[in-house]
Design a protein around this nucleic acid. Structure first.
Lengths: 249, 249
DNA sequence: TCATGTGAAAACGTTCACAGCA
DNA sequence: TGCTGTGAACGTTTTCACATGA
């Protein structure tokens, strides 16, 4: 009962879902750099994953490649957009218009992929009423009304940690069921609300794990010899060419 | 040959590694709210995962719990810090001091977990020399020297997309082997450089997938009835209490 | 000839269920 | 009694290897 049903909607594993936007980014950059077709091997190198994985992922959406040639980049993008549901309208509200909120509003990764900044909220009187990017900042109290009117599909929390839970409550009460939280705070929301965290400190901790593990391996002497001394874009001496081959422009 | 070796360093799966910082955040909030012990069930509810998973994750680091009681929050935090390598010094450099860079420097999730802003870089003459947070912004040309002196362990890229690759090259050439990229650009780096993306557009696309999938289910009539109409902090009517029980203060 | 698409196998991660201990 | 720690069962994801087709 949804508009069209051209292909069977095979079940897409979560692991694939998080990779699809990565392929989108790569495809859009390949297109901008003039390529019109791309092989699973190229995609894999740029995404830093295995080529078979790329093929499996893409084959879940349908058979869009051409044997002996590869994939048509523009066509593939459109298909992934469809699978991700990005071909619909996604009005996004951002709450908290500090440095982070402003960075998000103006970020290139925002509008470039079809997402629409529908509303901005803050409680600071000095900010309310200001025009940031495409819209004017409203007082957070107005949130309930706007969201209830179906004018918001995804809520982005960019407030200080102390306000995050309160904002999440307000968004949920207003009927928003997808929250993206940039505040370093654990949020309590009902089980059927989609909630994702974007958190500098979490990322840094993961990086520190891998870097210190590597340091330990080196210290233990069991490590491979591919130590430091790497030259990214200086002439390759014919060693083992890997990921950085598919460098753009 | 590293300082101490009290427990065997069992191999920690990647999936666990990304959850450990989440537990850390929860623990630090529990501590602040006055709790000193925590059960796997509480941790699980707040992290929105299965309790068995929490126990498995933690048991990989050692046997730190007390049967019948739970885990000592402060002690557990210290153990996880050790496993993640966060107990070392992690000087971080941020390149690109726009709105995003400033938001990162001042972010609560930064210093609160022991990471240290060691250097800030930009190329805008209006910004170079300015003091932001704890340090003064240097010109990006100075990057090579500082980093080579071992003064940077993790590089954070917060520039516009157009400059991201160039900055990544500079960081890698300077010997930085862990990069965190906030720019919406695919980067080519040598295989042994640790590279992670933090990307609004990727997150939004994942959210849109799950929300549109849910919409499809509802439209198809096969969905559960747990539709909208949720009340997060308004009185519970005795239904099925779930995650939002463990709400803090 | 070259690169996709896909069964089948292997690796990995999650969940169950309960023994063991405070 | 209550909650951890963990083998064993289960499910998912990755990888291999090759048949298939442009």
């Amino acid at each position: 009962m949804t508009s069209e049903n051209a292909e069977r909607p095979r079940r897409i594993p979560e692991a694939t879902v998080v990779r699809l936007p990565v392929y989108q980014r790569i495809l859009s950059e390949l297109l901008r750099s003039g390529s019109s077709t791309v092989s699973s091997e190229q995609l894999a190198a740029m995404a830093r994953v295995n080529a078979a994985k790329v093929r499996k992922d893409l084959s879940l959406l349908g058979s869009f490649g051409t044997r002996g040639t590869g994939y048509d980049a523009a066509f593939l993008m459109a298909q992934i957009d469809k699978a991700l549901g990005v071909d619909r309208d996604w009005p996004v509200a951002i709450v908290g218009i500090g440095n982070l909120g402003r960075a998000l509003v103006n970020s290139e990764g925002f509008s470039s992929r079809g997402f629409r900044v529908a509303a901005l909220y803050d409680i600071d009187p000095a900010v309310v009423g200001e025009r940031v990017g495409p819209v004017t900042v409203e007082h957070a109290d107005a949130l309930a009304k706007t969201a209830r009117d179906g004018e918001v599909s995804i809520g982005v929390i960019a407030t200080p940690a102390a306000a995050a839970q309160e904002v999440a409550d307000a968004l949920v009460t207003a009927g928003v069921i997808s929250l993206l939280n940039f505040a370093p705070r654990v949020l309590a929301v009902p089980a059927d609300v989609q909630l994702r965290y974007v958190d500098l400190s979490i990322e840094l901790q993961v990086m520190s794990f891998y870097q210190s593990r590597r340091a330990d391996e080196v210290a233990a002497g069991g490590a491979v010899l591919r130590a430091v001394g790497l030259t990214p874009n200086q002439g390759a001496d014919g060693g083992s060419p890997e990921a950085s081959d598919y460098r753009l422009t």
